[in-house]
Amino acid sequence: MPTQGQSFDYLRAQASALRLIDKFGQAGAIVRDGPGAGPEWDPGEPIPTAHICRMAVLKFDNKDIDGTLIKAKDKKG
């Protein structure tokens, strides 16, 4: 724990987190809508694009499960 006059080493913490995710994480993808295929002034419907990644998959806390937006079997990544 940092003492007075000492700062937290965020780069070291980030390196540790990345190493752990690389070792224990799961392969997955984050899907985001990209621009449609039409011209700039009328691009049309968005096109979903998958971005492959490695992620930590975690359970939601019971207090966050509302049964509508977040269901009991949902996971967060």
Results as ranks from 00 to 15, higher is better:
50 A>C: 10
38 G>C: 00
32 R>F: 14
17 A>S: 02
11 L>Y: 04
22 D>N: 03
25 G>C: 01
6 Q>S: 12
51 H>D: 07
70 I>H: 05
6 Q>R: 12
21 I>T: 04
55 M>W: 08
48 P>M: 07
73 K>F: 07
63 K>F: 09
19 R>L: 11
54 R>L: 12
69 L>I: 05
40 E>D: 05
25 G>E: 00
60 F>I: 12
36 G>I: 15
26 Q>G: 00
8 F>L: 15
3 T>H: 09
19 R>V: 05
29 A>L: 13
53 C>F: 05
64 D>M: 13
7 S>P: 11
1 M>Y: 05
67 G>E: 10
4 Q>R: 03
14 Q>R: 00
63 K>Q: 06
47 I>D: 04
55 M>G: 12
60 F>Q: 08
11 L>K: 01
47 I>R: 12
37 A>D: 07
38 G>N: 00
70 I>L: 08
65 I>M: 07
8 F>Q: 11
52 I>S: 11
58 L>D: 09
75 K>P: 04
21 I>M: 01
33 D>S: 11
16 S>G: 10
26 Q>I: 02
11 L>Q: 03
24 F>A: 03
34 G>A: 10
69 L>D: 04
14 Q>A: 02
37 A>N: 06
41 W>T: 05
67 G>S: 08
36 G>W: 15
56 A>V: 14
44 G>N: 01
10 Y>V: 02
56 A>T: 13
27 A>R: 09
5 G>S: 05
57 V>P: 06
66 D>R: 12
34 G>H: 01
4 Q>F: 07
63 K>H: 09
45 E>G: 02
54 R>K: 15
53 C>P: 06
40 E>S: 03
20 L>I: 01
41 W>C: 05
27 A>G: 09
31 V>P: 10
41 W>Q: 04
71 K>P: 05
15 A>N: 04
57 V>N: 09
74 D>E: 13
69 L>A: 02
4 Q>L: 07
64 D>W: 14
37 A>M: 03
15 A>T: 02
60 F>A: 10
45 E>D: 10
49 T>L: 09
7 S>W: 15
55 M>Q: 15
12 R>M: 00
48 P>R: 02
5 G>R: 03
22 D>W: 00
54 R>A: 12
23 K>G: 00
15 A>P: 02
50 A>P: 14
22 D>K: 00
48 P>G: 04
50 A>L: 11
17 A>G: 01
52 I>C: 06
36 G>A: 13
57 V>T: 14
24 F>T: 00
31 V>N: 08
20 L>C: 01
50 A>E: 14
28 G>K: 01
47 I>A: 06
55 M>I: 15
64 D>C: 11
3 T>D: 10
37 A>H: 05
35 P>G: 07
42 D>P: 00
46 P>Q: 07
49 T>K: 11
52 I>F: 10
41 W>V: 06
48 P>C: 04
67 G>N: 09
34 G>Q: 02
47 I>M: 09
26 Q>F: 03
10 Y>K: 01
41 W>P: 00
57 V>F: 11
55 M>A: 14
39 P>R: 06
24 F>V: 01
31 V>I: 15
73 K>Q: 13
17 A>V: 01
60 F>M: 10
28 G>A: 08
22 D>M: 02
27 A>W: 06
9 D>W: 04
30 I>T: 08
59 K>E: 11
68 T>K: 12
